[in-house]
Design a protein around this nucleic acid. Structure first.
Length: 135
DNA sequence: GCCAACGTTGGC
DNA sequence: GCCAACGTTGGC
C-alpha cells in the first residue's frame, strides 16, 4: 500500500466537508504530474489531507475508495479523479512550518514541489508525520 | 498584496 | 523545437 498527500484549499473543499460525506470525488486536478499520481492510487491507499493557503497544515487522513476514472468536470476528458473517504482527523494538525523545521523531512514533495497538489509520501515520511501529530 | 516557482500557450 | 509572455499556485 502506498501513501499520498492531497492538497485542498479549505474555502473550496475542507476537511470538515470531507468528514460530512461518505466519500468525495477528488476532481479538478489539471496538472499532468498530479494526474499521474492519481492514476497510481489503489483502493486502500491512504493520504494526508492538507489545507493549503489557509492553515497550511495536515489535518486528517483519507483513504482511496475508488480508483481513477475520467474526471466528469473535465470537458476534454483527459484528466482523472479518484474517490476518497475520511478515515480520521489527526490528533493534532501538523503545520508546514513544523515539517520545514524537520531535517529528515527536507526531501518531502510538499516542500520540494510546492505547487504540486497530489504527491507521493514515503512510508518513512508518513510515520514521522504521524508521530508528530501524536504529541 | 507580493512574488517565486513553475506550467502552459503561442509566435516564430 | 525554442523561448518569451503569461497565468496560476501557494507561501509569506
Amino acid at each position: 500500500m502506498n501513501y499520498w498527500l492531497l492538497k485542498s484549499e479549505p474555502d473550496v473543499w475542507s476537511w470538515d466537508q470531507q468528514c460530512k460525506v461518505k466519500s468525495a470525488e477528488w476532481d479538478g486536478v489539471r496538472n499532468y504530474q498530479a494526474a499521474a499520481n492519481l492514476r497510481a492510487m489503489r483502493v486502500g491507499d491512504e493520504a494526508f489531507f492538507y489545507h493549503s493557503n489557509i492553515g497550511k497544515e495536515i489535518v486528517g487522513i483519507v483513504r482511496v475508495v475508488k480508483e481513477f476514472y475520467t474526471d466528469p468536470t473535465d470537458e476534454i476528458g483527459k484528466f482523472v479523479c479518484v474517490d476518497v473517504a475520511a478515515v480520521r482527523p489527526l490528533k493534532r494538525a501538523v503545520t508546514l512550518a513544523e515539517i520545514k523545521a524537520k531535517p529528515v523531512l527536507s526531501n518531502i514533495a510538499l516542500i520540494r514541489q510546492s505547487r504540486l497538489s497530489v504527491m507521493p509520501i514515503t512510508s518513512e515520511q508518513w510515520n514521522i508525520i504521524l508521530k508528530m501529530s501524536d504529541k
